[in-house]
Design a protein around this nucleic acid. Sequence first.
DNA 1: TTTTAATAACTGAACAGTCAGTAATTTAAT
DNA 2: ATTAAATTACTGACTGTTCAGTTATTAAAA
Lengths: 228, 228
Amino acid sequence: MAAASPPRWRRRKDARPQEILDAALAVFADRGFAAASVEQVAARAGISKGTLYLYFASKEELFKAVVRAAIVPALEDAEIAADHDGPAMDILERLVGGIAARVLSSPAGVIPKLMIAESGNFPELARFYRDEVIRRALALLTRVLDRGVARGEFRPMDTAATAPLVVAPLLMAALWRHSFATLDDPAPSGHAIDPAAMVRMHLDHLRHAFGAVDPARTGDTPRTGDTP
Amino acid sequence: MAAASPPRWRRRKDARPQEILDAALAVFADRGFAAASVEQVAARAGISKGTLYLYFASKEELFKAVVRAAIVPALEDAEIAADHDGPAMDILERLVGGIAARVLSSPAGVIPKLMIAESGNFPELARFYRDEVIRRALALLTRVLDRGVARGEFRPMDTAATAPLVVAPLLMAALWRHSFATLDDPAPSGHAIDPAAMVRMHLDHLRHAFGAVDPARTGDTPRTGDTP
DNA sequence: TTTTAATAACTGAACAGTCAGTAATTTAAT
DNA sequence: ATTAAATTACTGACTGTTCAGTTATTAAAA
């Protein structure tokens, strides 16, 4: 008798959604939302087009789900890190480093690019992103900066206007990575922008700009904190 | 007898290309390239689809032309400004201010957004943009920074890694403007990011980070220049 | 344990709409 | 009358979405 041929497909109701989300993120990442086809996503997820529609009502809903799934955990992490105690500059470094790591290694680093590209076509989602992601992230940063100023660790400044300045290079790194970095060469050498060096330099500049450099250098100390 | 009806259309071979480019930029700006249709562009330019194809061979070629047309003059302006003489910080301010103005008012400010969104679909154009626009702009900035360091106006630093940091907030402002700023409200008040304040603050931080603050303050002068 | 009925995950093809690009035709200008 | 700019009508390919039917899985019955 013939050996029992393995089934042509399996029922995996639980695993599908995440697999589809992963596939969609990947396909959207290199085609963009509009140019990506549902069939490509389905193929990458190892299912048929019809199956995808069992789990997501439309291409647009799929897109929203991708964004939400990738953003929520990242934001929670950041919120935890920001509410730690200690020198403001340390927290800032941890925050910037954490975001940089995420943005430069995780596939979810494409989300900003996608959101920026499609904001015009999905105003509703764009509003969600602006109010629930960007605004929250900036508020969180502003809080850290305020604390630094209040404690005399940072020079006085317009913290609300400064917060986006802290993120800008990270955004730039993310966009660079998913737009121009991976264009041709395997060896990412000498290529206009070196994200790692950039982030390092960024933190260095921030330290100086905020007046948080090692205060032992001169008498011109940025009135560094008294005892705790 | 009937009054001579004005012609239903006119032959305007010379004016068409630029008008089409303007229309295309506008349509691409709020739909994105992929989601924009050639017919929409033609309609906005006041012509029919067929006419558009008399001037541009394909939708892709049109896109390339839009990018080139918008970028080239901007880059030339910047190159001129950078080669002026004077204190490095002044040049930097003029450069940043100039780019900010362009990016925040001119329609061409969408180009970065478009390039980022479509880099995956047009590798050739993306390479052009990376090598002929980004690289050149960063090289120009690096030159200014180097001069500042050499003259003792700026503290020593990794200028190549710093150049992108100077641009990052401008890029962010451009993306913000064309993605999230114009989502709903007519009054752009209190909205997470205030580009103007951000740019002002950016320059302020740069002055501090580069050690270019008024040096009369303490003895800890950033070894400011001797005479020429 | 084996058989069989019921369920639900999944497929593949077809539909309807859209759109980049082309060809035939009209109309302005010379 | 001739040229060339512009329009209009058309095609072929593609894609989001639906759905009738197929197959794996589960559960009840024997």
